[in-house]
Write a protein that binds this DNA or RNA. Structure first.
Lengths: 346, 346
DNA sequence: CTGAAAGCGCTAACAT
DNA sequence: ATGTTAGCGCTTTCAG
């Protein structure tokens, strides 16, 4: 059996309460000299407070639950890494789980987090915020998705606007027939990126029909197959336009990795035969061949803001919800057609 | 305040104990008809057992702690993803933390996990197993590192052997002067991969001096810089051999992404000017340009085995430690010099 | 088959 | 400044 607070108290010749006072620096003062005896006993016995008991009794579990669609996508990987790091620095531990896009998993996992009394919750993507689980939660919740009307605080990237600006960049290079590779649109992020593409094309009088859209699984493989579909002579969903798209807007870097590979296999030069702009700005995007032009969304900043805000809400219950939207910025690589080291000017 | 077991008991007109019996299917039987009343009350009130209290009282937290060097490397990403998924299926939640290679973080985080009474611990990489934290742990611990003598169970990849076989493959293609790009060797995995390269070179009478080794940070950037160092005309640590290495052994896929990029920038053709074999076999390796030849280590299998074993140890305390080592297999891509779709035969 | 009751280790109000 | 004590919500032994 582990050594408990009573053991320490006995060894130090004080009452258990005093041990608590020493450990928590309060709520009652302790004579310096008593404190030293207690600390000595703690050290001596190798005492460690039982976090479970402490959580049951008073208060907090010093734990935050993080719910993401998956762990392997670099965007969520980077997000989770930075969240975890920031929380660790603040003395919190992170409980993670992945939904893989299933509503049912979301609800179940969320409920599990709640049952475990995590002090806070960070949720990304498509959670049924109105679901039974979240109505009447006691802990602080931060949603990383655009929900301006939500009673929960939200923090999001401007996916639709960022996508539109990425597409605009291709248009500036003279492209009209711009294909779109995007994940399943029931994922809110992908849905927004898809409408960003569509609206930007429509607004500027360019084609925006479904024949130019390829829905793709997340991951390199998805982007690879979608690009194959949009660019090869077979299938030809774009046949109605009489020519192949001269550019692709790809909704995520990882899918763009696959798309680049498809171009390479098909013998299409990037950006000469096919220009390409993606979304994400993850670390690896600088190292593809050629390096990606990508709409960088600052995940680290997003993560840190999320943690800061969440911790505030944990410490100050009852804050009114905040809704913040971050904007991406284009990182010009070699896939869009800008001269290698130049930046385009309008 | 949340609804407690007593509330349910009162609503169902039974004692709190009976509610427990129903929820846990034991340890005492409950009349079918009483059970139904209880279940109805639970449903009615929306009762959820308090996991904290349950953990304090009896037993288990249904939580496993996972300690990795970081989260963003695809190897650890995939490992963690699969571990998390498997554990979730088994009703466990995963607490994750990253050490970023710091001994002090390791010890601190490990201790935190222990304080939180995680039922089990999965540890990767360089933990001071003899450290104060781990001596006398009560929970089950699985170490994903080769430690044949450890009193804790271990599960590892044969990093040294796999590396040697990867290098052998380059040798078979006729390469003698083979550079080595590897992470800081105080990370045990990297140390083993480095010796795999060195021993294989030495054993076959080929150069294995430090001039052929470039220590690199993990990540694409590290591989990029290291490759630049080993291949460019400047610096030339290989000058003593009078020519540039004709092949590179790269200790991780991600570093290989960077190395490929460096080759591309330097105008070196892969595999004609520089052949390249890496370690990992992560998902992205199939989509580089050209696709990587890589020693695939089956992370998913590793993860599932780890979970299976850990859960066994949790359920059956006192099992003697097991030590398992898994072997990788070479996935032939286009960077080694094998004909595009063929496989080399000796 | 069901109920009463003893803690798990801790915090904090209350008493000294 | 320190000690005593009542729970937090649950599991499980022991009595009925």
């Amino acid at each position: 059996m582990a050594v408990t607070r009573s053991d320490v108290a006995r060894a130090a010749g004080v009452s258990p309460a005093v041990v608590s006072y020493v450990l928590n620096n309060g709520p009652r003062p302790v004579a310096t000299h008593t404190r030293e005896r207690v600390l000595a006993a703690i050290d001596e016995l190798g005492y460690r407070p039982n976090a479970i008991a402490s959580a049951l009794r008073g208060g907090s579990t010093q734990t935050v639950g993080l719910l993401t669609p998956n762990r392997s996508n670099p965007f969520y990987g980077a997000l989770a890494e930075e969240i975890e790091r920031t929380l660790t620095e603040q003395g919190y531990l992170t409980l993670t789980a992945s939904t893989y896009g299933y509503r049912s998993s979301e609800e179940r996992l969320l409920q599990t987090f709640i049952d475990r009394q995590t002090d806070g919750l960070i949720i990304t993507s498509g959670v049924s915020l109105s679901g039974p689980a979240l109505s009447g939660v006691e802990q602080s919740v931060l949603v990383l998705e655009e929900r301006p009307e939500s009673p929960l605080s939200t923090l999001s990237m401007d996916d639709e606007g960022d996508a539109a600006r990425a597409v605009d960049h291709l248009q500036v290079h003279g492209h009209d027939l711009i294909g779109c590779i995007v994940g399943p649109p029931y994922v809110s992020t992908d849905g927004l990126r898809l409408s960003g593409w569509r609206e930007q094309q429509r607004r500027t009088g360019r084609p925006a029909s479904d024949g130019l859209v390829a829905l793709a699984d997340a991951g390199e493989e998805g982007g690879y197959q979608a690009a194959g579909l949009l660019l090869s002579e077979h299938g030809r969903p774009w046949a109605v336009y009489g020519r192949r798209p001269t550019a692709l807007f790809v909704a995520s870097d990882v899918q763009a990795f696959g798309a680049l590979h498809a171009c390479w296999e098909l013998g299409l030069r990037v950006p000469d035969d096919v220009a390409l702009v993606s979304m994400g700005g993850t670390r690896g995007a600088r190292f593809t061949i050629p390096p990606l032009t990508t709409m960088r969304q600052d995940v680290e900043y997003l993560a840190r803001s999320a943690c800061t805000r969440l911790l505030e809400e944990i410490r100050t219950p009852g804050l009114p919800p905040a809704h913040v939207r971050l904007t991406g910025n284009l990182v010009v690589g070699h896939t869009c057609g800008c001269s290698p080291y130049g930046v385009i000017r309008r």
